[in-house]
């Protein structure tokens, strides 16, 4: 099977998965107690008005009728209106999602650039001092709560030293770049707007590191164990026997062979970071999807909750599809099975 066939097959397989997710979230959110109409109108509202609003929002219809209405909306690109922000959910997502995606991408880049080399060093110097240090640091990274690390970083770099900004995505005197992807750094680069890029970039540093701390720990540990296994294998010995230098053997032979479990973990953590960055977003007042989702849940804002869930589900599947394609690129034995 060739690449295009494989990808289209995988994309088609997304449809039943998305259907399942939408059914699940819809029915769960509509069977839990709580009345959105009451929440919107407040505790002292007139029962007649509440009834009217319930009727208007279609809350009295059977659940499957409501679901049908919702799905036909999705197919037309309409995720309904948020009851909390009073905006179309699609527009809200467009506004908040790029901020989260930018932060997640940035933290994943840090994770990969730091975690994988650390893991390799750790495996190559097994049981020696560099290994002990890396393992200890990785353990701390995994064990430390993100919000706590975020606050410590804020105290030090923002309050004490004043070298890095502490909140938001841009300095107040900088206006956002033209909207292309919604990710400020990328948009600024695309439009060649250097000062905006700088401002957006330094705002990413602290939240990026905070979010990366946990994932670096995980990737380091995974890389270490995967590499330890690979370094014992015969082809690594062959590579040394050919006259390869240590770096050549580690990065040219061993890493590629040990990459599969690392890639899997990168895919998982990427998906996880997208949906679970709410703590970091709160600490750094990052206007992202996490905060939006938490607000939506607090106010029983069903359309918003559903929208966020579906978006994250799609992304999760998409990231894993990309990871699967990477597998095929790396390992000739798989070849689109």
């Amino acid at each position: 099977m060739d690449a295009i066939q494989y990808i289209s097959k995988r994309l088609l397989l997304m449809i039943p998965i998305l259907f399942g997710i939408s059914v699940l979230t819809f029915f769960i959110s509509h069977t839990i107690p709580g009345d959105p109409a009451r929440l919107i109108l407040g505790p002292k509202a007139d029962p007649v008005i509440i009834k009217e609003l319930q009727e208007k929002m279609g809350l009295n219809d059977p659940v499957y009728v409501q679901y049908g209405r919702y799905v036909s909306g999705i197919l037309q690109g309409d995720l309904g209106n948020s009851t909390y922000t009073q905006q179309a959910v699609v527009n809200d997502l467009k506004r908040y999602f790029p901020a989260t995606l930018e932060l997640t991408l940035f933290s994943m880049i840090i994770t990969v650039l730091v975690g994988i080399p650390f893991g390799i060093i750790s495996a190559n110097k097994k049981d020696k001092i560099p290994d002990q240090i890396t393992r200890f640091a990785a353990l701390i990274g995994v064990a430390m709560p993100a919000f706590w690390l975020g606050i410590i970083l804020l105290l030090f770099f923002y309050l004490q030293l004043g070298v890095l900004p502490g909140a938001g995505r841009l300095d107040t005197w900088v206006s956002p770049p033209a909207h292309i992807t919604g990710m400020y750094t990328i948009d600024a680069l695309l439009t060649g707007n250097w000062p905006v890029f700088q401002s957006a970039f330094i705002h990413l540093i602290l939240p990026g590191i905070t979010q990366a701390a946990v994932t670096i720990g995980m990737i380091t540990r995974m890389t270490r164990s995967s590499m330890l296994e690979v370094l014992r294998s015969d082809y690594v010995r062959t590579a040394y026997a050919k006259g390869g230098s240590q770096n050549r053997v580690l990065y040219g032979h061993a890493l590629q062979n040990g990459m599969m479990p690392i890639l899997t973990l990168i895919g998982m953590t990427f998906g996880h970071s997208l949906g679970g960055s709410v703590l970091v977003e709160s600490v750094f007042s990052w206007p992202g999807l996490g905060k939006y989702a938490v607000n939506a849940i607090t106010y029983l804002d069903f359309p918003a909750v559903m929208g966020v869930t579906l978006l994250i589900a799609v992304l999760f599947i998409f990231v894993n599809l990309i990871i699967d394609i990477f597998y095929q690129v790396i390992d000739p034995r798989l070849k689109y099975e």
């Binding site: 010995r237 062959t238 590579a239 026997a241 230098s245 390992d331 000739p332």
Partner: peptide
């Protein structure tokens, strides 16, 4: 490194595991 694979070479027992499966 200059001598290995150049002046002295080595062949191992199991050719499947001794070759890099990804290259």
């Amino acid at each position: 490194e200059k001598i290995r694979g150049n002046q002295i070479s080595m062949i191992f027992q199991d050719p499947l595991t001794s070759l890099n499966p990804l290259h």
